[in-house]
Design a binder for these strands. Structure first.
Lengths: 118, 118
DNA sequence: CTAATTATTCCATAAATCTGGAAATATGGA
DNA sequence: TCCATATTTCCAGATTTATGGAATAATTAG
């Protein structure tokens, strides 16, 4: 994963509407959500939302697929994880003390080996 | 940690010079680095660099402290980790499958207090 | 084909960001 | 004091981003 892609992803999420969209789509995995419904849910005009969706898609954070008249958007969780991993490893590389508490913090929610619960 | 702060942090890192600065400062922990040396190292004019440092500082990702004529900048690793945690938990909350592979990926580099499989 | 639905592209405006020259501020030394 | 160093602030121009009205495209129903 290139630095350029990371910047694209960070920029895509660094905007309130788009961050909300991404959150919304993560919550709707794996079914996804049509563009119009996303716009309605967040009370944003359809064309404005279309521009935001395009930014998120160009950053690789969401994917679209036409289904009949609707275009269904889905969060790309693998990509999101890749971005987070890059960002953390980039700093964690020489600095385990950065990630150690983060792992500790995240582990109760979802540990690697076992299917997690709350 | 508020959404607003997250957006500020993401926007701060979503720019190539600033991402480089942050990387550089993480590598220079805990001594830090004077503003002028950062500018020289990345071949950016002092006033331009000052603007970028200001953005990173406003986002809470770096801190400054005057030492004689120099102003020493340091990465705020706790803050960085807080941003990463918020971002991950925000999505991980209902979706352990996002974080599980990430933890698995990060663990070899830096495990928490206890070995992960303990 | 025509109409309705869904979503995008085109276009213009407003706002924010990036950049760096010139001037200003802060510190320490002679 | 005056001077050099280190950094920031002021300012302006260039670029990018955000927003939404109007027009356009894609799909389906009748």
């Amino acid at each position: 994963m290139e630095s350029e892609e990371i910047i694209l992803a960070l920029a895509a999420l660094a905007q309130s509407t788009r961050l909300e969209v991404f959150r919304l789509l993560v919550g709707r995995e794996p079914e996804g959500m049509p563009a119009g419904e996303i716009a309605r849910e967040l009370a944003v005009p359809a064309n404005t939302m279309s521009a935001h969706l395009s930014v998120l898609a160009r950053a690789g954070l969401i994917r679209s697929e036409r289904r009949s008249r609707s275009i269904i958007y889905r969060a790309d969780l693998d990509r999101f994880r890749a971005v987070a991993t890059f960002l953390l490893k980039d700093c964690c590389g020489g600095r385990p003390e950065v990630c150690a508490p983060l792992i500790a913090d995240l582990t109760p929610c979802c540990s690697p080996k076992e299917p997690a619960r709350g």
